[in-house]
């Protein structure tokens, strides 16, 4: 949790300190949004997921007992919410337009501007569970054991799912390698 200690924040939330939820939101919002966007492929839906996630966190946190890490628990709410939203939503992924300037990428990128879109589409087309596993491992850098906790499935299932997802991406992006 960066500079914050989970236990301190949790204790503060549970005794009703008003700043604690703000601390939590400030720290986890980018992570929740990132995972939600990559799973839903839609920034608007991802924003909804963020809001819904923190509403649930606010409701449940005072009664929460640490059976897992706080971050794992918040991820679990967010990922489930994102999968549900994905199922509910009929909206097509809306390309981001009218944004402020994009965040520059750090690595030297190929000149073909369509490559990022191809990757984005290939990931977006993965089945929901495969996408969730792939996003959490590849983009969020989460350990497979933690993903298993977040998704509430066996570790073996997570391993197999990650392989299926990567195999599909390898197939769809063959010409770009």
């Amino acid at each position: 949790m960066g500079t914050m200690d989970e236990a301190i924040v949790l204790a503060a939330v549970q005794r009703g300190a008003p700043e604690a939820l703000a601390l939590l939101y400030g720290r986890f919002r980018p992570l929740v949004f990132s995972a939600a966007f990559r799973i839903t492929g839609d920034a608007n839906v991802a924003e909804d997921v963020v809001q819904e996630t923190f509403l649930q966190v606010r409701e449940a946190l005072p009664r929460w007992r640490p059976q897992a890490r706080l971050s794992t628990w918040i991820y679990r709410i967010a990922v489930n919410e994102a999968l549900d939203e994905k199922r509910r939503s009929r909206r097509r992924p809306v390309p981001e337009s009218g944004c402020a300037e994009p965040i520059p990428e750090r690595a030297a990128a190929p000149s073909d501007p369509g490559v990022s879109d191809r990757i984005h589409d290939a990931v977006a087309q993965l089945p929901a569970r495969e996408k969730a596993v792939f996003v959490l491992r590849h983009y969020e850098g989460m350990a497979l054991a933690e993903i298993a906790e977040v998704l509430d499935v066996a570790l073996g299932t997570v391993k197999a799912t990650l392989h299926h997802a990567l195999s599909k991406l390898a197939d769809r992006l063959r010409d770009l390698r």
Partner: peptide, 28 residues
């Protein structure tokens, strides 16, 4: 051959990670 294909895909994905539109929103 399969391992090479998988490794090449991981390299590609790391090289060209699609920017997060939401991150732009967050940036704003």
């Amino acid at each position: 051959e399969v391992r090479e294909a998988l490794a090449g895909t991981v390299r590609l994905l790391k090289r060209r990670s699609a920017p997060l539109p939401g991150a732009r929103r967050a940036w704003r």
